[in-house]
Amino acid sequence: MAFLALDHVNKRFGDHIAVEDFTLSVKKGEFISLLGPSGCGKTTTLQMIAGFVDPTAGSIHLEGRDLLSTKPAQRGLGIVFQSYALFPHMTASENIAFGLEMRGIARAEREGKVRDALAMVGLDGYGDRYPRRMSGGQQQRVALARALVIKPDVLLLDEPLSNLDAKLREDMQIELRQIQRNLGTTTVLVTHDQTEAMALSDRIVVMSKGRIEQIGTPQETYERPASAFVSQFLGKTNEFPAEIRLSDGAQKLIFGSCEWQAPAGPSGPVTVTVRPEKVGFASPKSDSLKGRVVSRIFQGNHWLFQCETECGPAIVVRQNNGEPQPEEGETVSLIWRKDDMGLRRAGESR
């Protein structure tokens, strides 16, 4: 039995469908990210788990217990909001102790748990500080400690890192993942940041227009996107128009001047997809795509090339290994491994 289970959950606001037929089983201790653009239904889904929004249809169970018949305060959940929602008139220690006090934990025990929580998030010695005297990263840690100190069955995170600058956000991702692994707390994160979702998650739920597009590990969703939306939302993807047709008695995949052996399936138009970092430069040959470097950008540990090819524009990302790189205006041949290429037939989402 799943630890947390959402079964055919739907939510309508009048004529607007916010979430449609959402089904997900979460294992105990798993870190799940709900990933998608604004308006895709991810926050509404989190709010339905928390009890702030009632589903129009469907069921939500935690360890077999019906959450929809349970008041939000009694669901045993810890929540960290985007705004952190700290009490400004309380110190860090008082903010963390609030949930324990509401549960009737004795003062001496509360104080010990608060000290442990502050240490867990690296804030030893900050217990007497008020939120206004703390940085954004420190406030985020207090909010996380407040949510975890009650030992919730599930930790819900609503874009908690989005207000931090890029370097601090990256540091907090590492710390958050380490804390979650150490405690083994089942966690559901809402984010629109694909890098964050891939860095933190055991599995990612990619959403679009209220529906699930794909559920999989970060590697699965990136390497084997289930739809054109997932392919474009998770990083960048080159897409080239192509055709599968019979040539010299065999099925061939043809794009530009390239001819590759085609996979099994019907003939007709297809789209070839390949990630920019999977593309390399090669000497001209029959299985390479001819092109020209339009621009190149040095980004420290890698080069970003924009190319114009016989099948349209392409992006190539190459690691900076110290070797000479093609110049702007130079003619190039693009090559990649067959296993790194995806095919999407006309009329298919995959």
Results as ranks from 00 to 15, higher is better:
Met1Asn: 00
Asp7Met: 08
Ala18Glu: 08
Ile32Glu: 01
Pro37Arg: 03
Cys40Gly: 06
Met48Thr: 02
Ile49Leu: 05
Ile49Met: 05
Pro55Ala: 09
Thr56Pro: 02
Thr56Ile: 09
Gly58Asn: 15
Glu63Tyr: 07
Ala73Gly: 10
Gln74Gly: 07
Phe81Cys: 02
Gln82Asp: 14
Ala92Pro: 01
Glu94Met: 07
Leu100Glu: 00
Arg103Val: 05
Ile105Ala: 06
Ala108Arg: 13
Val114Lys: 06
Asp116Met: 06
Ala119Gly: 05
Met120Ala: 07
Val121Ile: 07
Gly122Pro: 02
Asp124Leu: 04
Pro131Val: 03
Arg133Glu: 08
Met134Gln: 00
Gln138Glu: 12
Gln138Thr: 05
Gln138Tyr: 06
Gln140Phe: 01
Val142Pro: 05
Arg146Gln: 04
Pro152Glu: 06
Ala166Gly: 11
Ile174Asp: 08
Ile179Arg: 11
Asn182Leu: 08
Thr195Trp: 06
Met198Asp: 06
Arg203Pro: 03
Met207Trp: 03
Lys209Tyr: 14
Arg211Lys: 15
Ile212Trp: 11
Glu220Gln: 12
Tyr222Asn: 03
Phe229Trp: 03
Asn238Asp: 00
Ala242Glu: 12
Glu243Phe: 12
Glu243Ala: 10
Ser247Gly: 09
Ser247Glu: 15
Gln251Asn: 12
Ile254Lys: 06
Phe255Cys: 00
Cys258Ile: 14
Gln261Tyr: 13
Gly265Pro: 08
Ser267Phe: 11
Pro269Ser: 14
Thr271Glu: 12
Val274Phe: 13
Phe281Ala: 06
Phe281Leu: 09
Ala282Asp: 14
Ser283Ala: 15
Lys285Asp: 15
Thr309Leu: 01
Glu310Ala: 09
Cys311Ile: 01
Pro313Cys: 13
Ala314Glu: 13
Asn321Arg: 15
Glu323Tyr: 08
Glu323Cys: 13
Pro324Leu: 00
Pro324Met: 02
Gln325His: 14
Gly329Ser: 09
Gly329Tyr: 05
Ile335Tyr: 14
Trp336Ser: 11
Lys338Pro: 04
Met341Tyr: 04
Gly342Val: 04
Gly347Lys: 13
